[in-house]
């Protein structure tokens, strides 16, 4: 069975972060991670966005990392349909938080990324991602507690789900090829893949 979206939970890799003296989970474009443990979730963002969503009372939180698969020069309705990916990325994260004991009406979010870092792209991919995440949260009634989005820099984000604290490092170079290449590979994967989950009829 093929995964419905490149939101791979298991590919993310865990390591011991000596600075924070905690287990750290590093997530890549298309991945998400939700936890009830006192860990740190780390990601590096270019034009992708990451939503850190948490229930501060249940002390569970998680992060996703995604971008809308919008091809250059596409019109509005296509942007609307591309938002299905973003909506699914948010829903996967939220459902996992609910499974871990979060309550939907207690969820709050912080959002990061969406930089204008891709050279040679006429479309502001980052800006579209920023608009989407803001609108999604507003739509769903999930308060956006803080954000650091847009601008010309890639970011490294550390999220501590137990406290809700986030550390953001704005990275100097806008020519960080590793980040850009990863995002480009990811976006090609997403755009090239049919936007279909599995369908099964029981009758």
């Amino acid at each position: 069975m093929s995964p419905p979206v490149p939101l791979v939970h298991g590919r993310a890799s865990k390591y011991l972060d000596r600075n924070f003296n905690r287990q750290a989970m590093k997530i890549l474009p298309g991945e998400f991670y939700a936890t009830a443990e006192d860990e740190v979730i780390v990601t590096v963002l270019g034009s992708c966005v990451a939503a850190c969503v948490m229930d501060p009372i249940a002390m569970v939180g998680g992060m996703n990392h995604f971008m809308l698969p919008v091809k250059q020069g596409e019109r509005d309705p296509d942007v609307f349909f591309a938002a299905r990916y973003g909506a699914a990325a948010m829903e996967y994260l939220i459902n996992n938080l609910l499974h871990l004991g979060a309550q939907r009406d207690r969820l709050v979010a912080k959002a990061f990324g969406g930089g204008k870092v891709m050279r040679g792209m006429s479309t502001d991919v980052g800006g579209q991602n920023v608009d989407f995440v803001r609108e999604f949260l507003r739509n769903e009634g999930i308060p956006l507690w803080s954000e650091d989005m847009g601008g010309p820099y890639p970011r490294k984000v550390y999220f501590f789900p137990h406290t809700g604290q986030v550390l953001v490092k704005r990275m100097e170079s806008t020519h960080n090829d590793t980040v850009l290449n990863r995002e480009l590979t990811y976006i090609q994967e997403v755009v090239g893949r049919p936007m279909n989950g599995d369908v099964e009829l029981f009758t």
């Binding site: 979206v5 299905r84 909506a87 989950g197 599995d198 369908v199």
Partner: peptide, 17 residues
């Protein structure tokens, strides 16, 4: 249930089902 569709859905596929 009559059927099961995994998100994200494509509009065409949804209408097809």
């Amino acid at each position: 249930a009559t059927g099961w569709i995994v998100k994200p859905f494509s509009p065409e596929k949804l209408l097809d089902v």
